[in-house]
Design a protein around this nucleic acid. Structure first.
Lengths: 202, 202
DNA sequence: CAATAATGAATGAGCATTCATTTAACAAAA
DNA sequence: TTTTGTTAAATGAATGCTCATTCATTATTG
């Protein structure tokens, strides 16, 4: 009956337990036994809800992370001018990752690992994010709040990279300070850069 | 006699082979047998030059990567004003990583993994890099080529993150385009940002 | 002939996955 | 309400495979 385990309480118990274990030790060094213990179920039970160990990580990307990224688009659409949209995107990103630090830790770790099966998932999410940035910047150019002479491909990476690095440090610090408050200062850097206007044109 | 294996040809053969294998599959899924095969030696031989599998990765950070990062400082010192130093840092970074793509791949992957033993190495290199950026920015502020109202901690991450992300994409693409040519456009973004001067002050 | 270096088969530990068995859930019959 | 039967869910010990690591043996060097 419940082919769709996603409606089942135990599916989530196990997935959350796995995320906690992955966050602490990384995917490869985590064992099914540890995940089972953390979830309070027997080792074998995990295989009633997941195909295998890889599948747990797959579900993490396909289900958990995906939801978060879908949110970004909705949040951004609520704002109307480009600069507010950019602020909103980054604030929402920080909010969501701060809300679920274990998710942030696993995301940070495992997106850089080569797990053949996840690649598509990860690429799709990244593309969605980059497209969001591109749309915002193009709108900003039309509104004349952003420079015309931008190399868009680079701008997208420039923004994504900085955002992820700010999260990275926050994760490494153990989440001991408020991440969201860094959003506006970061957007300020994106917009104005670090140079003095008068000289930076040289 | 050769306690210091680093002077030994075979030490480098094995280390380079390992880097190639790690780059292709990641540390955890690589086997000693694969590394031995790639290096053209027997499995056991590896243990004459390295304590164990982890030690190979340790040597990668302690020896290979470390050399590259030490270079950055020297390169930067050759320039005299802050903006040129920043350009030099990023150009050199791109040059070195482009010169040795396998190294870049392993660095990208394994710095985000939790390998207890590497942590110190990685933190030290990152700190050195961030200090370099901080010094450049502070000089820029004295020279009045960079803004006075900068939150330095954030600026460091902002720059490092963007730089690493640009490398990241280049690595993912399989190194199919020229990385170094992205250095100047990136520094331009760092200095001027993406906003229009007139409005970005709003 | 040492002494040093290299070999690769053998060892054993660790762990994902399976599956025979047990337990729980629920419904129909008494 | 209790009894009994049926199905679904959960268990965890047993299996078997994959390696990292070792070490007795062989080759190389000088």
């Amino acid at each position: 009956m419940s082919k769709n385990h996603k409606n089942n309480d135990k599916y989530h118990r196990i997935l959350d337990a796995a995320i906690k274990v992955f966050a602490d030790q990384g995917f490869h060094t985590s064992t099914i036994a540890q995940i089972a213990r953390e979830a309070g179920v027997a080792d074998g039970t995990i295989y009633l809800y997941f195909k295998n160990k890889q599948d747990i990580l797959f579900q993490f990307f396909a289900y958990k992370t995906r939801l978060v990224f879908d949110n970004f688009k909705n949040a951004v659409e609520k704002e109307k001018n480009a600069i507010d949209k950019l602020k909103c995107l980054i604030r929402t990103h920080f909010e969501e990752f701060q809300r679920d630090r274990k998710m942030a830790e696993v995301y940070r770790m495992e997106t850089r690992q080569c797990h053949r099966l996840m690649e598509t998932q990860i690429k799709e999410m990244t593309k969605m994010y980059l497209d969001l940035i591109a749309a915002i910047v193009e709108q900003g150019q039309q509104e004349a709040s952003m420079r015309q002479d931008l190399y868009l491909v680079l701008v997208k990476r420039f923004i994504l990279g900085a955002v992820e690095e700010v999260i990275n440090v926050w994760v490494i610090s153990g989440g001991r300070y408020d991440l969201v408050s860094q959003a506006d200062p970061l957007v300020d850097l994106f917009l104005k850069g670090i140079g003095c206007q008068e000289i930076s044109d040289q």
